Simulated assay, not measured.
Amino acid sequence: MTVTALPDTEATPPKRGWYKRNEIAVTPWLFLAPAILFFAVYVIIPIFQSFSISLYDWDGLGEARFVGMANYQELVTDRAFEVSLWNNLKWLVFYLLAIPAGLFIALFLNQTVTGIRIYKSLFFSPFVLSQVVVGLVFAWFYLPNEGLLSNMLGWFGLGPVNVLGDPTWATYGIIAAGLWPQTAYCMILYLTGLNAVDPEQVEAARLDGAKGWKMLWYVIIPQLKPATFIAFVVTIIGALRSFDLISIMTNGGPFGQTRVLSFYMFEKALSEYGFRMGYGAAIAVVLFLIMLVFIAYFLFSMYREERGGR
């Protein structure tokens, strides 16, 4: 009697290629690859190029001469650099006023009152305006004789004031112009955050007797933490890279007293007064390092929040 072997019903699975075996892990990186490539070409590589150029004495066209840390040593004794650095700190401190201002405007616009759409449109309009337009509007507003500010002061018997022509007040006048659209931006962030506030927590707080400032401080603001975080990031970065308003309103004057680091870098590296690419790159590196401190702090805060939420 012969026994016939039954055919093997379990077929051997075909061998899969490397991509099929790692498809879940690789596919997200394929989608991210174009963005990573552009980020590397237009952000990461220029950062290292700026570090490299800052070590040279170069006019942008001729032969570059290696000078090491000489450009940074010159910054220490450069009075114009010191003024620009202090002005950047002023921008940083006063620009943060846009955050509480945006919060309180958002709280007002979140109410159901008559004509609220008109109010929202009026407060939203500065955000859609170009910085150049904002600079021109405030430059006209600050005109010593024909400007609206001088005319308003005249109602109270005060003489005309030349805000942009006074070295003491010019920087603060420009910061006030920048606060107008920045407050509108923070307002939009907080309006979005208020839509995500849990109404059950608000109602529970009301039952416990919380109202007014206690309601705001202990119930509303903690739920607006993500919006506040983003508002801090964009406001600080906006304060440190301020350039266009200064260029439009004073062009760094009077007597160079409204310069900030970004504008001074432009003057030294690209304007007719400088063409010192190495020195301008050194200023850019200092500005980048200042920004890096805040960016690292914000990234660390995000990482800590992610770890805490797990």
Rank of each mutant, 00 (worst) to 15 (best):
E267L: 14
S84I: 04
L85W: 11
Y42P: 04
I118F: 14
N88F: 10
A184M: 06
A101W: 03
P254T: 01
Q111I: 11
V285G: 00
K214R: 15
P181D: 04
L240K: 05
W91M: 12
D244I: 13
A5I: 14
P14L: 15
V219F: 05
K120R: 15
T228M: 13
W169K: 10
G147W: 02
Y142K: 05
A106D: 02
A80W: 04
T114G: 12
C186L: 08
G193A: 07
G178D: 05
Y303M: 15
E82I: 13
V197S: 03
M1T: 09
P7Q: 15
T27P: 00
G60F: 12
I290D: 11
E10D: 14
M249Q: 10
A139E: 12
S301C: 12
N110M: 04
Y273I: 10
G309L: 15
N87A: 05
P199D: 00
C186H: 02
A176M: 11
T77Q: 13
Y56D: 08
Q49P: 00
V293L: 13
L153E: 03
A205N: 09
L207C: 11
Y119C: 08
D208T: 01
A281L: 09
M69F: 15
K15P: 03
W169A: 14
F255E: 06
F94G: 06
G62L: 06
D198R: 05
L32S: 07
Q73A: 14
F127M: 15
R65E: 15
I174N: 06
A70C: 01
A25K: 07
I283E: 09
V197I: 07
R241M: 07
W91A: 02
W169S: 15
V233A: 09
A64C: 04
R307H: 13
Y218K: 10
I248S: 02
Q182S: 11
F266M: 07
I188L: 12
I295F: 05
T228E: 05
G209E: 07
L89G: 09
A33W: 11
D78F: 03
F300T: 12
L270H: 11
G209A: 09
L153T: 06
K211E: 13
A11V: 15
L179D: 01
I36H: 06
L164D: 04
F127D: 06
M152N: 02
N22E: 00
I230H: 07
I99V: 06
W140D: 12
Y190G: 01
M265E: 10
L107P: 00
P100G: 02
Q131N: 10
V67S: 05
V233R: 00
L136R: 08
V285L: 01
G159S: 14
L289F: 05
L109D: 02
I116E: 10
I237Y: 09
L55W: 08
N22I: 01
